[in-house]
Design a binder for these strands. Structure first.
Lengths: 145, 145
DNA sequence: TTACAACATTTGTAGGTACAAATATATAAA
DNA sequence: TTTATATATTTGTACCTACAAATGTTGTAA
């Protein structure tokens, strides 16, 4: 590998972290007035996605971006805000059943358009083909791990 | 904006966070045996980059990826490990002069090839042109903020 | 020269990430 | 049946991010 490719590799690593951190900052800022962090918001969306079916902690953790984060403690925060309820699973008492509440669904409903708007803003001026290209490169990187 | 573009926008946001988190995990893992976190490693590289010139906390903070992080406390950790020394600036006593130690330089020397290797691994199978394309897209996203 | 604003860093706090160890429950093997 | 193993979640710890407030220092205008 040439020195040039090595420099590019480092630049890619640094810039992908920087870009992701900027996106994170934007979304954090958009959610803040509504009292949610990105992680709490993501867990809420995952629970909405299970369509009324009970979701276990494991189910939620598998779908999170930061898989090593502590789902128990993020869910705790959502329960405090009455956005989620937690029940012990009847069939398997090791498991925890999580459900989004009506209040949680209603909050998500408000946030959807706000987040859509932010996502539009972030990708503004980037062509569809360019996004497809970017996603393809991401898949190559992710497939290694 | 079409519904299709909106879905792509969301996918880009999610996958860029996921990719960056995977890269972070890889680098964290590579650095762990040497007792450094990514943030500590980055600060150390920034201090090496100042080539023996005193670097203020502000100088370091500006160059970090996570600008809102607490440079004081990251530097504290590096000082504990004798990788960095901190002095009050003589000309302006508000400022702090930071220097990387010989021990710090020597550790970085060991880590360089390890990180180079990781960066190679991450970008393996991705063509130079593809990386340039990716970096161009990143610049577009970053230029908005 | 004494206020006052600007600057540079530190400290406090709430929330997260990563990893390991502990707890509780269920299943399978001797 | 007892023991061992696997499964699901919780708890503990070190470190980090984001943001705000506090501290100490410097420059400047009345």
């Amino acid at each position: 590998m040439t020195n040039d490719k090595q420099k590019l590799a480092r630049e890619l690593v640094v810039q992908s972290m920087r870009t992701s951190q900027m996106i994170t900052a934007e979304l954090t800022c958009a959610l803040h007035p509504h009292g949610l962090t990105i992680q709490q918001f993501n867990v809420l969306r995952i629970l909405r996605g299970s369509n009324g079916e009970a979701a276990s902690l494991q189910y939620v953790t598998e779908r999170m971006i930061h898989k090593m984060s502590n789902t128990t403690r993020i869910v705790d925060k959502l329960i405090e805000k009455n956005l989620v309820v937690r029940k012990q699973c009847a069939e398997n008492r090791r498991k925890i059943d999580l459900f989004i509440t009506t209040q949680g669904l209603s909050l998500l409903n408000t946030l959807d358009s706000i987040i859509d708007e932010k996502e539009k803003e972030i990708t503004h001026g980037i062509q569809t083909a360019e996004i497809h290209q970017l996603l393809a490169t991401y898949r190559k990187i992710q497939s290694k791990y």
